[in-house]
């Protein structure tokens, strides 16, 4: 077992999993609090359509994934802002349209391309050094922006209209959040795949939500849960030869259900603080 950690591929995988786990869990805090779960799921499928087009045309797949992901979140954000359509309807349409495009692009490929499926199901154990650099670079960018705008992001997650009324440029911060969600999805695509990436974003933050009533602690718990389950999932995957994406997500889901059972918030719900 120890020998496993001496392999280069394993070290790369663990590093990729830790970075993706950490990044997803931080972005997830804002996604869960702002109620954007479905937006993220839609973005993942849109980004996958970009990857498929990239392989079909011989263009860089990650660049196209970013373009498709950003287009999806920005259209969704614009639709919500204008109040033209319910958010779940607009994202539902984009979600299925981009998935249809992905299937079309794959169908148009003359040969079977295993790498495309790697982006659909995730293959952290085959992450290359170049991919690791891209993951690292984008992670630093996304986390840097979150640190820079954390107070505004927390405020719009709490109440966007109140934030705007208090003098925070809430609309611009909302679009920044959507952009960060899209970039996070793209960064994580290779590691956990388009289908499971959203679990990496949702589950650590949702688990932490059960455990605390403080924003700071919520973020901290979410990171610890995200990084730990991602790294442990990779170890399980390598040790028992099971696919890495499901190993990470099922482990995180188990932790989530345990947290629901033992949630101190749930137990304290009836307790009211009496002043005076």
């Amino acid at each position: 077992m120890i020998e496993l950690f001496t392999y280069d591929f394993m070290q790369r995988s663990l590093l990729a999993a830790a970075m993706v786990g950490g990044l997803c869990s931080v972005v997830g805090v804002f996604v869960v609090l702002r109620g954007l779960a479905f937006v993220g799921a839609g973005t993942a499928h849109a980004a996958f359509a970009g990857v498929a087009l990239g392989y079909l045309m011989g263009w860089p797949p990650l660049v196209l994934a970013i373009i498709f992901g950003l287009a999806t979140v920005w259209i969704t954000g614009w639709v919500e802002e204008k109040g033209r359509m319910k958010l779940d309807v607009s994202i539902g349409i984009l979600y299925t349209t981009t998935m249809a495009l992905a299937i079309l692009f794959i169908g148009l490929m003359k040969t079977y391309n295993a790498e495309v499926y790697g982006y659909l199901f995730g293959s952290v154990l085959s992450v290359t050094s170049d991919e690791l650099r891209i993951i690292g670079g984008l992670s630093v960018l996304v986390l840097g922006l979150i640190v820079l705008f954390s107070k505004e992001l927390y405020f719009i997650a709490f109440d966007q209209e109140m934030a705007e009324a208090s003098g925070v440029p809430a609309r611009r911060i909302f679009f920044l959040l959507l952009t960060l969600v899209a970039l996070t999805v793209v960064v994580s695509l290779k590691t956990v795949g388009a289908i499971l990436v959203f679990a990496m974003i949702l589950i650590p933050a949702s688990t932490a939500y059960q455990l605390t009533s403080s924003l700071r602690t919520l973020t901290l718990y979410s990171i610890v849960i995200g990084v730990t389950t991602a790294v442990a999932g990779v170890v399980i995957s390598a040790t028992w030869d099971v696919p890495s994406g499901p190993a990470i997500v099922l482990l995180a889901t188990t932790v989530f259900f345990i947290s629901v059972l033992f949630s101190p918030k749930r137990m304290k719900r009836a307790v009211q603080v009496h002043a005076h």
Partner: peptide, 26 residues
């Protein structure tokens, strides 16, 4: 501004001081 009760999610994981600090952000 004090919004109408019910507009804000009262179960949002935030402490009293964290809530009041948001008033400084703008």
């Amino acid at each position: 501004y004090l919004p109408q009760k019910g507009v804000v999610d009262r179960n949002f994981p935030v402490t009293v001081l964290e809530t009041v600090m948001m008033g400084r952000y703008g």
